[in-house]
């Protein structure tokens, strides 16, 4: 990157108290303070947020899509982790 252009940041917004921060998009900023302010101006113009996280994009590590099979499919066969796996006799409530 040349010294003329700013690094890329990923923006996460909490839309209201009680909800998770959710990825909103990315933007350019020279530092974290500017990144927060730019995020406010770019991604919350219509009152979409009450809190902002920013992280420089280069600091995000992602799983490899080629390994998706081995990472995520083994969980599919563990159906006993879900309540619907179990039989409950008729007439039982609140379980």
């Amino acid at each position: 990157m040349s010294n003329k252009e700013w690094p890329l940041w990923e923006v996460f917004i909490r839309s209201k108290q009680g909800l998770n921060h959710k990825h909103a998009g990315s933007l350019r900023a020279a530092d974290e303070i500017m990144a927060i302010e730019n995020a406010r101006d770019v991604y919350t113009r219509r009152s979409e947020g009450v809190s902002i996280w920013v992280v420089e994009s280069k600091n995000i590590f992602a799983s490899n899509p080629d390994e998706a099979d081995s990472l995520f499919e083994p969980a599919d066969s563990k159906i006993y982790r879900h309540p619907t796996f179990y039989e409950v006799p008729d007439g039982i409530e609140h379980m």
Binding site: W6, L27, R28, A29, M34, E37, N38, V42
Partner: peptide
């Protein structure tokens, strides 16, 4: 000077 700042100044 950059899109982000264009948006900020307009705000």
């Amino acid at each position: 000077p950059v899109l982000e700042e264009d948006i900020a100044m307009t705000n």
